[in-house]
């Protein structure tokens, strides 16, 4: 009986996580359209529901009903599997994200490292989409993505290591507990690490101003040019889920996670996470896209040295 009840619990937890991911992705898509519209002094979607809140649902139904077009000359297996390779790691990362004091699927010992490792495998979906499409735009998109992710992973990891110096643990819950006195962002060297993290994380999830893998003006839609219907929707869901994940990591590592006065933990966690997401959207619709050479130069010549020096300074702070 123990086995059966724990199996039921596991199924319930998985359903809750999947439900949250789809609801969150739909909300984020609507929100992105609204934010972009208001930044460009437009209204955005207005017709379906109050201020267009039901628009993502209408879009989802449309995408589900669309014909699934398989272009001639694609590499069948690679092309078919690519959307799954993008989506599954994005979902798996949710295992170690702490939504509240006890609201975490599993508080792993290696929490943050697990999330980073799992999400780093999502890149294979992008490669497979880019290469399997048998299309020069898609291939270029995949290549740019490879170069970008290799470069930006280094400052990303170093900025996270800076946090680990102060928390003394890799477990997500212990990192939150370590911020009982003050949020980590208030520490000067972690303040720097926060910005390095946000910039490299934006590059990791291919968002503007670092959205070169899918630069519309150059590459049509980059690696997902050839996808339509539900497969396209899966790329979209994965993109917004990854965005939620990086913002959730930022909230947990630098902004005290679910800690906050008055309101319950999960509410604080969601407020912090969605605030960071809003900032990312704001950045996307404000700044122009950088060039490829600027992108790589920025990672290697600016972010990596800054994060390394910052790591040494943080170490000195701790040993002092």
């Amino acid at each position: 009986m123990v086995t059966l009840s724990s199996l039921i619990v596991m199924v319930l937890v998985v359903s809750a996580v999947l439900g949250f991911i789809s609801a969150s992705a739909m909300f984020l898509i609507w929100w992105e359209r609204k934010v972009s519209a208001h930044i460009q002094t437009r209204f955005g979607p207005m017709r379906v529901g109050w201020h267009g809140v039901l628009q993502p649902i209408a879009d989802a139904i449309k995408l589900l009903c669309k014909e699934d077009i398989v272009p001639v000359g694609v590499d069948k297996w690679v092309w078919w599997l690519a959307p799954f390779f993008v989506t599954v790691p994005a979902v798996m990362a949710f295992v170690a994200i702490p939504f509240g004091k006890n609201l975490i699927v599993q508080d792993l010992n290696l929490g943050i490292l697990y999330i980073i490792a799992i999400t780093s495998t999502g890149i294979f979906g992008i490669f497979m989409a880019g290469w399997g499409s048998n299309n020069k735009y898609s291939l270029l998109g995949g290549m740019r993505s490879a170069a970008q992710i290799i470069s930006y992973e280094i400052p990303l990891l170093i900025s996270i290591i800076t946090v680990l110096l102060f928390s003394g643990s890799l477990s997500m819950q212990k990192i939150v507990t370590a911020q009982a006195k003050y949020w980590f962002i208030l520490n000067p060297s972690l303040f720097v690490a926060f910005f390095v993290y946000i910039i490299s994380a934006t590059a990791e999830v291919n968002r503007a101003p670092f959205d070169l893998p899918e630069a519309e003006s150059e590459l049509v839609a980059g690696f997902h040019t050839e996808y339509s219907g539900m497969k396209f929707a899966m790329f979209f869901i994965a993109e917004y889920t990854n965005m939620f994940t990086i913002s959730a990591i930022a909230a947990t590592l630098f902004l005290g996670g679910w800690r906050g006065p008055l309101l319950p933990g999960p509410v604080w966690f969601l407020i912090k996470t969605y605030t960071i997401i809003f900032v990312l959207m704001w950045v996307r619709w404000t700044f122009p896209r950088v060039r490829v050479d600027q992108l790589m130069g920025f990672a290697w010549k600016v972010l990596t040295p800054i994060s390394l020096v910052n790591l040494i300074i943080a170490g000195w702070f701790i040993l002092k």
């Binding site: 490792a117 780093s120 890149i123 294979f124 490879a146 170069a147 992710i149 290799i150 992973e153």
Partner: peptide
């Protein structure tokens, strides 16, 4: 997986 095979594919 995240770095070396990525480099291979690149």
């Amino acid at each position: 997986v995240g770095a070396i095979v990525t480099l291979f594919i690149f």
